[in-house]
């Protein structure tokens, strides 16, 4: 065993991974809190439609209801994968 092996043998920093995953899921769950019950289903159905044309992951779709004065606005954004010229669904 080399003299520096103890450095490599250190366990991986999994706490950072945990924190990053939590940051994302907690903010997602907070933004959907108190919003209509149909949102998760709407999100899944929209995803199915979008996937007919482009392949996106579930977390590429961000959907939320925001209050804008008198109105409620359903806000939807889809992060598309990097554009490949000529590729069609």
């Amino acid at each position: 065993m080399g003299i520096l092996d103890f450095l490599k043998a250190r366990p991986k920093n999994t706490a950072n991974i945990a924190k990053e995953r939590l940051r994302i899921i907690v903010s997602q769950e907070r933004s959907s809190r108190g919003s209509p019950d149909y949102l998760p289903l709407l999100r899944t159905e929209l995803l199915a439609v979008i996937r007919k044309y482009v392949h996106v992951e579930l977390d590429a779709i961000n959907i939320q209801v925001e209050r804008d004065g008198e109105h409620e606005v359903l806000e939807l954004s889809v992060a598309l994968p990097e554009h490949k010229p000529g590729a069609t669904g």
Binding site: P11, T14, A15
Partner: peptide, 12 residues
């Protein structure tokens, strides 16, 4: 680095 720290939990 095996467990979330106080700061991590507070931040999340």
């Amino acid at each position: 680095g095996q467990m979330l720290s106080i700061g991590d939990v507070e931040e999340v």
